[in-house]
């Protein structure tokens, strides 16, 4: 029996734009299994980021049901343990070093003992930034910042990583490296990955590809 860790059924979301109502998500269904990587492609404005935010429990949905590991609890407290997020603009805390940025994820759960420090150090090593541990984000390149963000997303050993255009601010070569790292690490740690991307090449590297079109998801593997 498959281990579904993310189940979205009939997600709908609309925004008011002046007097018009924009339906951004129109009954989206998506399920992701443990350790599975799924890419979501689509044109700008198709609702990819809104879907990702809805899946993260950050954006309230108008209709539908979202289950994390079979539970409807998608509140802030559970979010920190259940999922890690990677953003296009890295969103590192500028006052913290690379090491402290990674450790911050554990700190927010109230856990900053030796095991957490060791894990942050090993993740830093895994993303190849041991020598940059004490550097603040301003002293890191774009690729390095995104690698720190990936390590941070994995810090609390989440069951799911949601990545929103993680290569959007990187050059092609660096972007390739970051995607390879993200896929490698998610496979190594058996963490599911939902990757929102414009890049079809990156999308093809995931286990499953889905297309977002006018607020609906079309599963390219199933042909829906």
């Amino acid at each position: 029996m498959s281990d579904v860790i993310l189940q979205a059924e009939g997600l709908s979301k609309s925004f008011l734009s002046g007097e018009r109502t924009l339906e951004v998500l129109r009954g989206v269904d998506l399920s992701v299994e443990a350790g599975q990587s799924v890419s979501i492609c689509g044109e700008s404005g198709s609702g990819k980021s809104t879907l990702l935010h809805a899946l993260a429990g950050l954006d309230a949905i108008d209709e539908g049901e979202l289950l994390w590991d079979g539970s409807t609890d998608t509140g802030a407290e559970r979010r920190g343990r259940f999922l890690g997020m990677v953003f296009q603009s890295f969103y590192l805390i500028p006052e913290l070093t690379a090491f402290d940025n990674i450790l911050m994820a554990a700190r927010m759960l109230g856990r900053v003992g030796k095991p957490e420090r060791d894990r942050a150090a090993s993740l830093l090593d895994r993303v190849g930034l041991v020598e940059r541990a004490d550097h603040v984000p301003a002293k890191l390149s774009g690729g390095e910042r995104q690698r720190v963000a990936v390590a941070r997303a994995l810090m609390n050993q989440p069951r799911l990583i949601l990545a929103d255009e993680p290569t959007g601010n990187l050059d092609e070569h660096t972007g390739e490296a970051v995607i390879a790292l993200l896929l490698e690490l998610s496979q190594e740690t058996q963490t599911a990955l939902v990757l929102v991307t414009h890049n079809k090449g990156h999308a093809l590297k995931t286990d499953r590809q889905v297309l977002m079109q006018e607020g609906r998801l079309i599963d390219s593997n199933s042909g829906h």
């Binding site: 802030a76 979010r79 920190g80 343990r81 997020m85 969103y91 805390i93 994820a105």
Partner: peptide
């Protein structure tokens, strides 16, 4: 954006 990030990381 950092405040948003804290929310995304589980901060109340």
């Amino acid at each position: 954006r950092e405040i948003g990030l804290l929310g995304a990381m589980g901060g109340k």
